[in-house]
Design a binder for these strands. Structure first.
Lengths: 259, 259
DNA sequence: TTCATATAGTCTTCTATAAGATATAACGTT
DNA sequence: AACGTTATATCTTATAGAAGACTATATGAA
């Protein structure tokens, strides 16, 4: 079936509810993909939701099931959707498992993975610094929430980190009791604030521990630490969280698979 | 078309040259994919080669073009093949560009990428240590080639690294003049020895510079360095090269994109 | 009656095929 | 040299049937 501006799609038994643009000559599956992303951004479909079936979507957009399938396949490859034969297609969620295997890269020497526990040192709300404004793409004068915490791995303190998010996007977060903050924050962002992290850019450096960091981690001042500077992005590719972790890497290593 | 052990494929105008197994009930596109990988491993198709067209492959294996396409699509997603509409499908090669953007992760503070130059300190052939045997999955007593070198970025020494490969797999490599070793070794592995690196596992830690490393890099002894421990794997998923790089990260950072 | 176990039906995604559209390069003609 | 034609390649879309998963219903035994 060919779309064109001059010939609108032929009428069938049931008319498409939400037709695609008539002046868009990109491949149909691309248009469907964008439409689906739009639904996700708009919040019509939230994490964990079940999408309409391929056939239903095909009818809605006036394309065939195979075309919808190609669009959904690509989103599945990007970890935005999850599909199970016979069950349906679902919006991916931030389970602890996903947080552990996809977004947390510090593993034991033997490659074993475990989520660290965390102890919050402080939570504060204040005006953003220049650097915070730049990283989170905030307007000048915006307010941010900063969380400082220490994380244990295998029972010993291993990570000192701070986390910065825009206060506007996370109302009430700063008023939560320190001990109620979960140690997998991405789930919280998703469930309470509708912000899903789908991508992250991490920059790693080796640094020397400050006196305070050394004390918190039980090391000598100046000991080498692995610094992970992470910017977490939403599906709209907007920065949501800036986090800098400084990690002790005698017991653990950062694992990166390239292929 | 349904395959079964009892009913062999129907004869057509031109008979399939290399039929798929009759007792394999996995999806056809999977079988085609494995067949293609087999050709790559066997060296029938080498890096840069052009594959037969989708239709030709379909005829060979007795399946339809769309089925071949699905197999090739997956291999393209894995960066094993490269496809260009109207031109054909090609076996991916290790261009300097690919080495830079895919396998080299040290970037400038502003995100700019550049390949480092390299100065070889020494090349030696000797028996493998226990650790080298384990990493490269060698038999006890195997010989290895070890290359030590320093790499400059932006005109200043930034990386000290050693590289270990099995001597048996790279005959003559150790006898090359030190200054003739290219600084992108993966191209050399591919062109001269038919070993294509398609995957790598990197483990990162923060370490303190040894006296020798500090001298080579122009730093104070004990300065923090980023250690990258990389195992490079062939398409058969066999380890080909073990490399440990220690990097100065005041001017550069290791970039990792998670999605 | 109650509980467990088939079983059929229906809904889902998955696999396979075919046909036409589109991109590219080579060649021939003007 | 410029331009159109042709051959050949991948890309896009559509369709049909296979296979997995859940639900409602029927059946049989305790």
């Amino acid at each position: 079936m060919v779309r064109s501006a001059s010939e609108p799609p032929v009428k069938r038994g049931d008319e498409p509810q939400a037709v695609l643009s008539d002046v868009d000559f990109r491949p149909l599956y691309q248009q469907v993909k964008d439409a689906v992303i739009g639904k996700l951004i708009g919040g019509d479909w939230r994490p964990g939701d079940k999408l309409p079936s391929e056939f239903r979507l095909a009818a809605e957009y006036g394309v065939s099931q195979g075309t919808v399938r190609k669009a959904l396949d690509e989103l599945t490859a990007q970890n935005v959707l999850i599909r199970r034969q016979g069950r349906g297609t679902f919006v991916a969620t931030h389970t602890p498992h996903r947080a552990l295997f996809h977004f947390f890269h510090l593993v034991g020497q033997d490659g074993s993975r475990q989520l660290p526990s965390s102890r919050v040192l402080s939570v504060e709300t204040r005006r953003a610094t220049r650097e915070e404004e730049a990283r989170l793409e905030l307007r000048a004068g915006s307010r941010v929430i900063r969380i400082d915490r220490v994380r244990d791995m295998a029972g010993r303190p291993a990570i000192v980190e701070f986390i910065v998010v825009a206060a506007k996007s996370f109302p009430g977060l700063a008023r939560m009791p320190k001990d109620d903050l979960p140690n997998t924050l991405y789930e919280l962002y998703e469930e309470r604030y509708g912000m899903t992290i789908v991508r992250a850019v991490e920059k790693l450096r080796a640094v020397a521990a400050t006196a305070r960091e050394a004390e918190l981690l039980g090391l000598a001042a100046g000991a080498p630490l692995l610094e992970i500077d992470r910017l977490a992005l939403s599906i709209e590719d907007k920065p949501v969280e800036w986090r800098v972790s400084r990690c002790e890497t005698r017991q653990h290593t950062y694992l990166s698979i390239v292929d």
